[in-house]
């Protein structure tokens, strides 16, 4: 056990933890916008897969990762838009349409992969950028300030999202629409338009989440490579009580515990691996049970808005 609390191990946990948290942050923050406006999109994992594929494919074909990222954002946005049409305009049951979107993304990304590529290939993804000054801090500089741009982006997204949700008129409208759409409607706020924007934005961020895997962290595409990360991302939104900072706490907890359990195994700590693998999930469920504030849940979550249903 003594080996565990050495500096290299702790630094290693931080480094891996930040990388593991990156895709969750994009996906969860995106879903936080969606849910705060009163819609839930269970199709995050499907959008992530499409984002991962399109980011990888376009990045590889054009040789420019930025085009890849843009493609992932565009595809994510379109899938978000599709979800918005189904859940906002057509007022379909959101749980089922979200699962439908997930299966659609899973299937389509596999199909496109097979049609366009012969097998798993890897590319050189976004390279780490050392931040001047901060990057030179002994020990911490390496693990905190020597990452690639998408990792930084994920963590910058947290204050940005928090700012938008709590400090701007737009954020106020999002929260109002999620809590009491009738009230928002009587004040002349276009409920459907707000939801279109958030669901599309959520889709776009899920697209980036996928791309962060395929062109920034793992740098390849494989069918079903997210293996359900999108669903964890949704759980993290609940964990964080719909607030970006809370979500970041959850994502970091989950990721750090995951990184920790790998170190436990690597160091040969006498510990059943099944238990180690379970650890991040168990910790998350435990924290969820303790921390979730149902009061914070948007009242209109999952309910389509129809004027006149007073």
């Amino acid at each position: 056990m003594n080996d565990l609390f050495t500096i290299p191990v702790i630094l290693g946990i931080i480094y891996s933890g930040l990388r593991l948290a990156t895709p969750y942050l994009y996906a969860s923050i995106g879903e936080a916008f969606v849910q705060n406006s009163g819609v839930y999109n269970l199709g995050v994992d499907g959008i992530m897969l499409m984002g991962a594929f399109s980011g990888f494919y376009v990045g590889m074909k054009t040789g420019n990762l930025w085009w890849g990222l843009l493609a992932a954002m565009g595809v994510g946005l379109l899938m978000g838009l599709l979800m918005a049409v189904v859940s906002v305009t057509l007022k379909a049951e959101q749980g089922i349409s979200g699962i439908g979107l997930y299966m659609f993304g899973l299937g389509l990304s596999s199909l496109l992969f097979k049609k366009t590529m012969t097998g798993v290939e890897s590319i050189s993804g976004f390279q780490p950028v050392r931040i001047p000054l901060l990057g030179n801090i002994p020990y911490l500089g390496d693990v905190l300030f020597n990452h690639n741009l998408l990792v930084y982006g994920a963590f910058l997204l947290v204050p940005l999202a928090s700012f938008i949700l709590y400090k701007t008129p737009f954020g106020l409208m999002i929260r109002a629409v999620g809590q009491n759409p009738q009230a928002a409607d009587t004040l002349g706020i276009n409920v459907d338009r707000i939801r279109y924007i958030t669901v599309s934005l959520g889709g776009m961020l899920a697209g980036i989440a996928g791309a962060s895997l395929s062109i920034s962290l793992i740098n390849l595409f494989q069918e079903n490579m997210t293996s359900g990360m999108g669903f964890i991302a949704i759980a993290l939104v609940y964990f964080g009580s719909w607030r970006p900072w809370g979500i970041m706490g959850g994502a970091l907890l989950f990721s750090f515990v995951n990184a920790l359990q790998l170190w436990l195994q690597v160091l040969g700590v006498n510990f059943p691996y099944d238990f180690a693998v379970m650890l991040p999930y168990a910790m998350t469920i435990l924290a969820l049970a303790i921390s979730v504030r149902r009061a914070a849940m948007p009242d209109a979550l999952g309910k389509p808005f129809e004027r006149g249903e007073f």
Binding site: T168, P169, L172, M173, R175, Q179, N180, L187, A295, F310
Partner: peptide, 30 residues
């Protein structure tokens, strides 16, 4: 109009409820 069932967002403050949906004098900032 004051509706029979109040059109307020319980999780927001009084001021936030008043400001809701209005243009801010500071543009994108509340």
């Amino acid at each position: 109009m004051i509706h029979q069932h109040f059109m307020l967002v319980p999780s927001l403050t009084v001021v936030e409820n008043v400001a809701l949906g209005l243009k801010s004098s500071r543009g994108v900032l509340l």
